[in-house]
């Protein structure tokens, strides 16, 4: 009789303890789901701001294909602004690595393009290097819109250069209105 009483008591203690453990795991679980929601949120703002960088780049590309140095300079400034608002905290490690690699370079090209509204040839030189940076950046992040990697074989004394476009139609930003349709689509980035 005494033995069964002790046995019941032990059983009760164990059961309560187990319940506690269950409760604890429950709370941990709900915490982590909150955490996931939060990181999910900040990841989406980071994507939104690479969107800002890409939007600035496309604006720049369109200005250059219209031979408009002033608009190009404004787009350069828009890219600089988008970089400042970029939050790296929520990036995945591989994205962080790519971003760290391209960041300084994008900033510098964007600044130069912003400062040289009257020198469109100089803006295009920086645009060529910027295009490679943006291409690598876009490849490291999930796509928000379909982009096309275009290639102009004539720019840079026949060395050729790439650019990114949001449309299938070729509008050459390197040669502008002189040769608007020069170039071809090399890749579709989805």
């Amino acid at each position: 009789m005494k033995n069964t009483f002790i046995g019941n008591a032990i059983l009760a203690i164990v059961l309560v303890a187990c319940n506690n453990v269950n409760e604890k795991t429950n709370t941990v679980r709900s915490d982590s789901s909150v955490l996931q929601q939060q990181t999910g949120k900040s990841a989406s703002t980071a994507i939104a701001s690479i969107k800002g960088i890409v939007a600035g780049y496309l604006q720049l590309k369109n200005a250059l294909s219209n031979d408009n140095g002033n608009d190009a300079a404004n787009a350069g400034k828009a890219i600089t602004g988008a970089l400042q608002n970029f939050d790296t905290a929520a990036l995945k490690p591989d994205q962080k690595k790519v971003y760290a690699d391209v960041q300084d370079d994008i900033k510098e090209h964007a600044e130069h393009i912003g400062m040289n509204a009257d020198k469109i040839a100089h803006q295009r030189e920086h645009f060529e290097m910027l295009s490679k940076d943006i291409y690598d950046l876009v490849k490291a992040f999930p796509a928000e819109q379909t982009l096309y990697k275009d290639y102009c074989p004539m720019y840079n004394n026949g060395k050729g250069a790439i650019w990114l476009s949001e449309t299938k139609e070729i509008k050459n930003p390197y040669l502008g209105k002189k040769m608007p349709t020069c170039g071809e689509i090399k890749e579709e980035i989805k």
């Binding site: 760290a100 690699d101 391209v102 960041q103 300084d104 370079d105 510098e108 030189e125 290097m129 940076d133």
Partner: peptide, 16 residues
Amino acid sequence: SYSSRRQRSKLKSIAS
């Protein structure tokens, strides 16, 4: 101290 990408951009600008 420049990132390797920036080093390449600088060299390209030096040449041009």
